[in-house]
Design a protein around this nucleic acid. Structure first.
Lengths: 351, 351
DNA sequence: TCTCTTGGCGGGAACGTTACCACGAATATC
DNA sequence: GATATTCGTGGTAACGTTCCCGCCAAGAGA
């Protein structure tokens, strides 16, 4: 009588079956204090018997903790961001929390909508790659919040997790120098993007350390896409030059586009042109030649963002900015022109 | 007094400010009946003034609808599945619903845990790529549910959305035949996988229609990975053969691995070996030569799955099985050996 | 034996929302 | 002009959970 067939069992169903009050049933199923081992056992058995599953909506309402986290990224279908999502999801699941995932498509309007949905869903916190330059909603957002990605830089009073661009650029440039390309050309993103400035600053720092004038490096801009990279590379190839051309692209998609442009021009990578990318997307592995690149630790960034969010939710310490180290992936797109390379004599450079 | 600073405003805060009862406030903010335009206006203004956001936890508890959907896939970082997730998320968002995303990593144990989390979260329904062969939890799952992927085939009494393998195989085989490869070799998945049988059956059907004996096609098995494809291709190349070798791989990763094996053996694709893949992952575009493949409509599958789930939630009609058509992506990995191809004389085959 | 403490348990309120019902006023119908 | 209908509004219960408080019994100490 107490439990109709099509209703999901509640804690009172469990209590009735175990012959205790719902308070006692709740205690048995949660706290470990003030309860006889024998009573607890009876309740647990009753819960299993009726197929009881705790209603997290009710728990969330009562406790003010929904047990859910929000993740707002530009595009879950983008390999880098899906990697971030995977890391975040894993870390959240390990803590018994669920992840609400949204794609903003780099559209501030869409982003605002998703943030509102997050607030309504009463998530306990959110991880956001902010697309809107202003992010007016921030003050209104009113939830524990961690930013990810380079655009997070704009908001000094919010904790953030990103990749260590400076270290990444150093990694790429060191390799280029070691392989005999002391002043590679640069393919960068649009001037409006903050990431571009960050990248360029890191390059300059590296240059002054080596006592080389940054001005001698050729620079072309483009959108962070395959086509953007292709166009930029075409312009680079159209410039007068002597000998081998080395390129450091600020994004793997652009690097892949650049590689296409090289091939379309009838040249060969890495024989005539060397290319180093930045991101570490899977496609780089299957390109030919394989794309040498500096890989961002997407998954780790996702994990650390969740951990940072936990801090934010629980202790509210000082806001922190975390930069995750990137790592080099050497494949075939970079020719070794260094003096110590025996291959150099044969003029091959093929890897 | 009514609204302390650190509490989020509720509907009674709105009601007090608008000078109405909370019932009226609720009506103004939801139903469009039995309310004066003037009153509604006052309430809406009051809601905006106090920064009211409807609490979906409470709504869900009261209405029995949480407004959330669950998605359980093997790996959100896998390009195909992240595409599915993107489609599902878009469609859900369009209906004002949120998506809880989980990765099972092909582990039945992990899957079971996620399903339990979904039930506890009181999602209104779930989209699942079932990994466990038995899926004992299905009867216990007790939620509206749509399966996706070829493994869904095992469960006749659950609605499912997948790609039309039969049509996809036909597409690939038709192209191979048209380009002068009447009996390509096949690289398939492990014998234990249902998808393998489905693929092979479709090939056989196509063969009988063309009056060719399927037995003349060489077959190699492997895991659905790059290495699996590489090994399979090595074995294929080790077999005695005359002239050009054409291969139809049941998975893009395997196809990419096969392409590597070809290169590692000192042969050239597509001059010596033609390769056609199946999936349509982005990496295929950047490989060299570009991978000709049959693309599964991942995003569409995600969208349709959500739509099917809506049907399941609302009307509960008959269970349905939906097969989404795949589409051909022609790139450079398939040589044209047909009699009508002028290039054939030159012996190039390069695209 | 009486009081005091302790541990186990039940009753009730509260979280924020919406559905249902009742009430009064205004309009429509005869 | 009396009754029926409609419309706008307010009060209240309920969704399922947990927390606080009070109660009772059992044991300890005087």
């Amino acid at each position: 009588m107490s439990q109709s067939r099509n209703r999901r069992p509640t804690i009172v169903d469990v209590a009735e079956r175990a012959g205790v009050s719902k308070s006692t049933a709740a205690r048995a199923l949660t706290a470990s204090t003030n309860i006889t081992e024998e009573t607890r056992d009876r309740v647990v058995k009753a819960a299993a018997a009726v197929g009881y599953e705790r209603n997290h909506l009710a728990v969330g309402m009562r406790s003010g903790r929904s047990g859910m986290l929000g993740l707002v990224i530009p595009d879950i279908a983008n390999p880098f961001w899906s990697d971030v999502a995977r890391g975040a999801q894993d870390r959240a699941a390990r803590a018994g929390m669920s992840l609400l995932v949204f794609s903003s498509d780099w559209d501030p309007q869409v982003e605002a909508t998703h943030l509102q949905t997050l607030r309504r869903a009463r998530v306990d916190g959110a991880i956001i790659n902010p697309v809107s330059d202003s992010f007016d909603d921030l003050d209104r957002f009113g939830l524990p919040c961690v930013f990810i990605g380079s655009s997070a830089e704009r908001f000094p009073d919010v904790s953030s997790v990103g990749s260590d661009i400076s270290q990444a650029v150093r990694l790429g440039l060191d390799l280029l120098v070691a392989k005999g390309h002391p002043a590679p050309a640069l393919i960068l993103g649009p001037k409006s993007r903050l990431a571009r400035a960050r990248f360029l600053r890191a390059v300059h720092e590296h240059c002054v350390e080596r006592d080389v004038d940054p001005a001698i490096m050729a620079i072309e801009d483009g959108e962070y896409t395959v086509d953007g990279g292709r166009e930029a590379m075409r312009r680079l190839l159209a410039r007068p030059r002597v000998g081998h051309l080395a390129v450091f692209a600020a994004n793997d998609m652009m690097a892949l586009g650049a590689m296409m442009a090289v091939r379309e021009t009838g040249l060969d990578c890495p024989r005539d042109v060397s290319i180093v990318g930045f991101d570490g997307i899977p496609s780089g592995e299957f390109a030919w030649p394989g794309l040498t690149t500096v890989a961002k630790p997407g998954r780790d960034i996702g994990e650390r963002a969740v951990e940072g969010l936990f801090d934010e939710i629980e202790h509210k310490p000082e806001h922190r900015r975390i930069y995750m180290p990137c790592r080099l992936i050497e494949r075939g797109s970079l020719a070794d022109l260094s003096v110590h390379n025996p291959m150099r004599i044969a003029g091959a450079g093929r890897v």
